[in-house]
Amino acid sequence: MTYKVGIMGATGAVGREIIEVLNDRNFPVEKLRLFASVRSAGKVMETPFGEITIENADEADYSEMDIAFFAISGGWSKENAEKATSAGCYVIDNSSAFRYDDKVPLVVPEINADAIGDSKLIANPNCTTAIAAIPLYELHKAYGVKKVLISTYQATSGAGAAGMSELTEETRNYLEGKEVGNKVFAYPIAFNAIPHIDSFQENDYTREEMKVVWETRKIFSEPEMPISCTCVRIPTMRVHAESIVIETEKPVNPDDAKKLLSSVEGVELKEDIANNVYPMPITATKKYDVEVGRIRQNLVFGDHGLEFFVCGDQILKGAALNAVQIAEKL
């Protein structure tokens, strides 16, 4: 079976990556159509599927598509998702618009593909959540997770192509002795770390931090799981790194955890500290699997605690790859 596929937001970082992933994974595309804003409509884009003329996303006829990947803003998704699903088109939405809607499945295919059911609308999780989810879920199944503490080190790609461009441009300005500015981020990102991603909430956490809490609970079907997160933007290009501490119901041995994670789909174990092998953004860039390493007994929770480090490509498993994996389950 082949599918007529549309990508809404095809000119953005995630939209472009979806095109590449569809080709790389040999997704059965009968016809690929690309959509973006009226400013981009009429332009021609080179793709692995040939040259394709970009169309106006606001004028899309969803009856002519089987699957639509939404890689635009949440507001746009809310306005257009029902148009697509009522026309019989599946929508895989990369925004936060529907993630917290109880009627819409939030899916990491390695964990809860069965949640899709007969829904025509499927939400793709936040990048930070998706990268941590697979190793965390496997440990939860094996040992029972009581508490989760996460600190993130997030790449500029999380703010889209504009974020990556700002890092490049302002790093160059810094090295050339020019004034360093900021438009995308709250402060200059070059040679800096900013503990502020998305808006601050009433509980003094940022929305990005609360996304990890809300979404992990929903994906795991664990609505009361205690999770706390601090999210920090750092001057890297496209891989998010996360330090994760868990307290477990059952005793957990680091060697057993390493053996468990070494055989998990979507995880690459990078665990050889004698030879300085561990997860890093530079090695996880453009990689489908999430790197996991630095697995050790946590000093606070003892034999009921584990600490580990993960790195995952924010644009791939954190967005485009997960979306295509969802489409593969339809």
Rank of each mutant, 00 (worst) to 15 (best):
A155C: 14
E242I: 08
N124D: 13
G88C: 12
A284W: 02
T230Y: 03
A115H: 11
D198N: 10
D66E: 02
Y100D: 15
E268F: 10
M237T: 14
S96V: 11
A327G: 06
M225C: 01
A81M: 08
S263R: 07
F27C: 02
D256W: 03
E20M: 14
E82L: 11
R172A: 13
K258C: 15
F191D: 07
H140L: 04
T283G: 04
C231Y: 01
D272I: 12
T206L: 11
I134V: 15
T285G: 00
D114Y: 05
I315Y: 01
K329P: 07
T236V: 13
E179D: 12
T156E: 10
F49G: 01
T248N: 06
A142S: 11
G266I: 15
E209L: 11
I19K: 00
F191S: 05
E202C: 00
E328N: 09
I194H: 00
E51R: 15
F191E: 03
F70Y: 12
E249F: 06
T129Y: 02
N56E: 13
R39G: 02
F309D: 12
G160E: 08
W76I: 09
P188G: 02
A115K: 09
G144K: 03
G15P: 02
Y278W: 10
T216I: 15
T248M: 09
G74L: 11
V267Y: 03
A57V: 09
A10K: 05
V108G: 04
F185I: 02
L175F: 14
S151T: 14
R33Q: 14
D102I: 04
D256P: 03
N56L: 04
A186E: 13
D256R: 07
V29A: 01
L139Q: 02
E176P: 00
V14G: 00
E202G: 00
P28S: 06
E169K: 05
A132C: 15
I326R: 02
F98D: 02
K183I: 08
N26M: 07
A113Q: 07
